[in-house]
């Protein structure tokens, strides 16, 4: 077989992706099971996309994010979102220094590499907006000065789907800024037993910092170089368009069930997440399997359902699954 530059890229990936195993190993020291969640956290890390984790309490959402941050030798800040939280508590503020006789900047916890926005839906819209603006622009303005956020900058937010009272659900436009929405399910029976043993033991395992910030930034460059063929681009756009115009893709049964389809961010993030997934799989090129693997996490929060769909108990999961089963694979 005549090799082209993909071979060189594959070799680079083999070299640069060695840390993936180390991170996985460190993560699984403290997290039992939840392979899907850990993999998605890595995708977010490599593709420079923020992640929203959704699951009932006690599924190690916070622990996973904390562990990932500890594995990487980078700044970590946890913000517990509460109804009385203010944007200044998050971004920082200008305070008057009597010593210097001037206003000085006190940066908030958002000036860190890894932000754990715990229970993001418990704070009102103005606080959510402040964070989401920082997520999008990757900079914060305090007073008349704009401060860029240090790379890698990754927001990992959690939300609880069952308690709706006293929460402020994220508006669609803001949810769209999360690259992935990962839904976490209960562990399996065997995993549950291991969790039990781990937690009643005298010492709880801890992750060790094994990676530097520079390693992540370097890996991100390699991820960007992962080859994405035009056929895969077409496949991605077909999937996204099928969510907007289901009739054109033989999905007439979804007519009237989708109020709005996935945004162009879905296409961008599908491509980026697929590249990151291919990188994790040690490949220098994207195949349709990569797109399908991340499609649910990228698209589930980007499709709006009508009342009819809710009445018929059809979820965005069903719609994404049906789209993947209907759109022709290249």
């Amino acid at each position: 077989m005549i090799q082209t530059d993909i071979k060189e890229l594959n070799e680079r990936i083999q070299k640069e992706s060695a840390f993936v195993d180390i991170v996985n190993l460190e993560m699984h020291k403290v997290i039992v099971g939840q392979k899907h969640m850990v993999e998605r956290l890595l995708i977010g890390l490599l593709a420079n996309g923020h992640i929203l984790l959704e699951g009932v309490p006690g599924l190690a959402k916070t622990l996973a994010i904390k562990s990932l941050a500890h594995t990487i030798d980078a700044g970590f800040a946890r913000i517990q979102f509460t109804p009385d939280l203010l944007p200044a508590d998050l971004l920082g503020t200008m305070i008057y220094s009597q010593k210097k006789e001037e206003f000085v900047v006190r940066k908030g916890p958002v000036f860190s590499n890894f932000i754990l926005a715990d229970e993001i839906n418990r704070s009102p819209a103005k606080v959510q907006s402040a964070l989401l603006e920082a997520m999008q622009e990757r900079q914060v303005t305090l007073g008349d000065q704009t401060y860029p956020l240090e790379e890698p900058f990754l927001v990992l937010a959690t939300q609880n789907p069952i308690e709706q009272e006293g929460t402020y659900p994220l508006p669609e436009a803001q949810v769209d800024r999360f690259m992935l929405k990962v839904v976490i399910d209960y562990p399996k029976k065997e995993e549950e037993k291991m969790i039990l043993r781990q937690n009643i033991a005298s010492t709880f395992p801890q992750t060790n910092p094994t990676l530097k910030k520079e390693d992540i930034l370097k890996a991100r460059e390699v991820v960007r170089d992962v080859y994405l063929d035009e056929k895969i681009e077409n496949y991605i756009t077909d999937i996204v368009f099928a969510s907007r115009y289901p009739n054109q893709y033989k999905l007439t049964r979804f007519e009237g069930l989708i109020s709005y389809g996935a945004s162009p961010r879905a296409s961008i993030y599908l491509a980026l997440a697929s590249k990151a997934f291919a990188f994790i799989r040690r490949r220098g090129y994207v195949i349709p399997e990569d797109v399908r693997a991340v499609a649910h996490d990228v698209m589930r929060h980007r499709i709006g359902l009508t009342y009819e769909a809710e009445a018929e108990n059809i979820s965005t999961e069903d719609i994404v699954s049906e789209i993947l089963n209907t759109v022709e694979v290249p």
Binding site: M1, I2, Q3, T4, D5, I6, Y227, D229, K231, I232, R283, G284, Y285, V286, I287, P288, P330
Partner: peptide
């Protein structure tokens, strides 16, 4: 076929 379609491989004539 996947290698050719998605990874710009150019197989040998025999392949």
């Amino acid at each position: 076929a996947d290698m050719v379609k998605f990874a710009r491989e150019e197989p040998l004539p025999d392949e």
